[in-house]
């Protein structure tokens, strides 16, 4: 837990994602992708932790973190990178502040990505301007994207046109969304509300709405429990981490005061779902352990003073 390696990048990174392993039993992934924002020329870059022949003294398996990651590829991106998600081992979807989503594919045998296709103008305001696409979620071969215009759009990898557009998902900007089941998505917005939708139904009427607090602080991120789809965690603009149980009608949430700054991303560990990670604007990354049924922060540790944006 105490090992980490630092590499200075010189651009503001908005999202960072590990490339998924080829199969479950394979070696740990060594590649990750980063996206930048708020710059004149934004880019998506690939990094690798390269092998170096260092053997540690007591013969332990050397941790990957001993090595500094190296940038192996970079490609430019129009607009800020708002979100990135890996669809499968080879393909990655990138959401941009110009309202478009692009699909990037890793080229075999080289460390590079090429743009396979781009869906433009997915998000537009009612009166025409393009809205930033703020979040992505993937499930199997589908990609769902949410934007500041309050729309959610469903895309399939092979098709050029969107599968489905849910127009009136939200009156406010959607900050994050996630797939609950194959046919259900859950969104959080700037008004502090958590909503679930059934995509099979044609209407955009939400099935359920939950509100966190009365002060309507925006909810910034959402993630669902890998095993139990009715448990969902959200992080808010005021640093509060909330765990929801969607089955219960009343008192369905547990609030925990966590960070001093907005929580930008929250993630459950895919294999050990009792462990939860949150990262926030105050520069810290917290690891939560829920095994004892009382959620205590196990080890908050500080990364550098620079703001961290994602786990």
């Amino acid at each position: 837990m105490d090992e980490y390696s630092v590499r200075f990048v010189a651009k503001k990174i908005s999202k960072i994602r590990w490339r998924p392993k080829l199969d479950q039993k394979g070696p740990q992934s060594r590649t990750f992708a980063t996206g930048t924002w708020d710059d004149q020329n934004n880019s998506v870059a690939l990094w690798q932790i390269l092998d170096r022949p260092i053997t540690s003294e007591n013969g332990d398996a050397e941790s990957l973190l001993v090595h500094e990651p190296q940038k192996v590829f970079e490609t430019s991106h129009s607009g800020d990178v708002m979100d990135m998600q890996y669809v499968n081992h080879d393909m990655m979807a990138v959401a941009s502040s110009t309202g478009s989503v692009s699909l990037l594919k890793h080229r075999p045998n080289t460390e590079a990505v090429t743009t396979v296709c781009t869906w433009d103008k997915l998000h537009q305001f009612k009166l025409g301007g393009s809205a930033p696409c703020t979040c992505l979620a993937t499930r199997d071969e589908w990609i769902a994207s949410g934007g500041e215009d309050g729309k959610a759009v469903l895309l399939a990898i092979e098709q050029r046109t969107p599968l489905q557009t849910l127009d009136k998902v939200d009156s406010c900007a959607i900050n994050d969304l996630s797939f609950l089941k194959q046919s259900e998505i859950i969104t959080v917005n700037s008004f502090g509300q958590l909503k679930t939708f059934d995509i099979r139904q044609d209407t955009s009427k939400e099935s359920q709405i939950f509100s966190v607090t009365e002060t309507h602080t925006p909810l910034l991120c959402v993630d669902r429990h890998p095993g139990q789809p009715h448990i969902v965690a959200t992080g808010g603009d005021d640093g509060m981490l909330t765990i929801w149980d969607l089955r219960q009608e009343k008192f369905h949430m547990t609030l925990m005061e966590a960070h001093t700054g907005p929580i930008w991303e929250v993630k459950f560990h895919p294999l050990y779902p009792n462990h939860l990670f949150t990262c926030s604007d105050d520069g810290s990354l917290w690891h939560w352990d829920c095994t004892a049924c009382a959620s205590d922060p196990v080890q908050p540790f500080m990364s550098s003073k620079g703001k961290s944006y994602s786990t």
């Binding site: 009612k126 009166l127 301007g129 309050g150 939200d170 009156s171 700037s190 008004f191």
Partner: peptide, 14 residues
């Protein structure tokens, strides 16, 4: 101005 009354309301409330 873009007639997004919902977002406008949430910002103004803030």
């Amino acid at each position: 101005q873009q007639e997004r009354l919902g977002s406008a309301l949430s910002w103004f409330l803030r």
